[in-house]
Amino acid sequence: MEFLGCPAIFHESALIEFFANGSVRDGMIVSTIGGIAVEIRESVFAETFGLPTEGLTDLSEVPRNFLSDAQSLFSASENEVSTSCLKKEIKMQYRLLSDILAKSLFVKAGSFDAVTRDRFLLMTVITFDVKVNWGNLLFGVLKEMVTPDSRQAKGYAIQICVLLKNIPGLELGESKAFPAPRILNEKTVHRIISVNENVGIEEVGEAPTAKKTPVKKTMSKKRQAASEAEVAPVIKKKRSTKGKSAVTRRISLDKQVEDTTADDVDMIILQVISESTDLSSNKEDQGDKLVDEPDIGDDFGAWLESSFPGS
């Protein structure tokens, strides 16, 4: 696979060093890779890739008549477009040309809906075959790439590696195949066209609103049990005393907890505990008065019958 006549391979480690150490000095690009000095001049750059070195070096010098004709020719409607416009305002083939210039020559990432004035001028000189000093123009882009703190994206990976191979004694390291989707071929051109066809198209209608999933309210186990129409009997518990077997009794709470809340159930439990404590303390104060009343520690069942008749 080739890209503009160059093998579609690059050397990642060498490129990282090239950009990290690169700068512009006396009109040429200088850097170091593996301790070896690298110098790239404009003349060498243009000669290596066979770029024209005659013609316009300033795009503002594009003839006015060409510019006026381009404003009508590029327009997708009957009205002339401005030199700074949106891609949807120009014909499909010029949208494609704009993207090629942005992504390949000027190495801009992503897709832009705006056509800048400089890009419009370049589209004009290409369309009307105006002579341009492409060696000077593209070398200027490369100088911006290696300028420290420049906002220009890094690119020209294949071309830079071709230049570096001509430097004696320079080891470039392992090579990698350039990503196929980044190579301009029939497939990528069709993809760019399909993307540009949708530029400026507004969606009709609104997307259906997603139905909200109803949130099921849950109750705590305690409150859920209290709200049931029928309350299950309390689980049997064993109570052991000295010298006596544990007495087990089933307690039915149908009457007491009917139409009650969990707080009411809590109050009943607290009442039982409180009364059992009072019985123990009152026994010492009242003496013979409690002789006939059963002791809770002796017979829990008998105490329960006397304390809660009918339970």
Rank of each mutant, 00 (worst) to 15 (best):
N196V: 01
T53L: 02
I158V: 15
K103I: 12
E293I: 09
V132D: 11
D58P: 03
I16P: 00
A153E: 14
L184W: 06
A46H: 08
L184F: 05
V44G: 07
E171W: 09
S75G: 09
V257E: 13
N166C: 08
L4S: 11
Q286E: 14
K131D: 15
I158D: 03
H11L: 01
W303C: 12
F300L: 15
K165Y: 00
T261I: 01
K143C: 12
G34V: 10
S276H: 04
R239T: 13
V204F: 14
N65L: 03
V231P: 00
H190Q: 12
N136C: 11
A102S: 15
F128V: 01
K87I: 09
Q286D: 12
S75E: 10
G243N: 13
A232M: 00
T213A: 14
E171L: 14
T248M: 10
R95D: 14
A232R: 01
R25Y: 09
C85R: 13
K238I: 02
L96T: 07
K165E: 15
T124Y: 04
S68L: 10
H11M: 03
S77L: 08
L137C: 09
P208D: 09
D259Q: 13
T260N: 04
G22D: 04
L59F: 06
L121N: 04
L59I: 11
V189K: 07
T127I: 01
K236L: 01
V141I: 14
V189D: 02
V189P: 00
R250I: 08
S111C: 11
M1S: 12
V24H: 11
K216R: 13
S150A: 15
H11N: 14
F120Q: 01
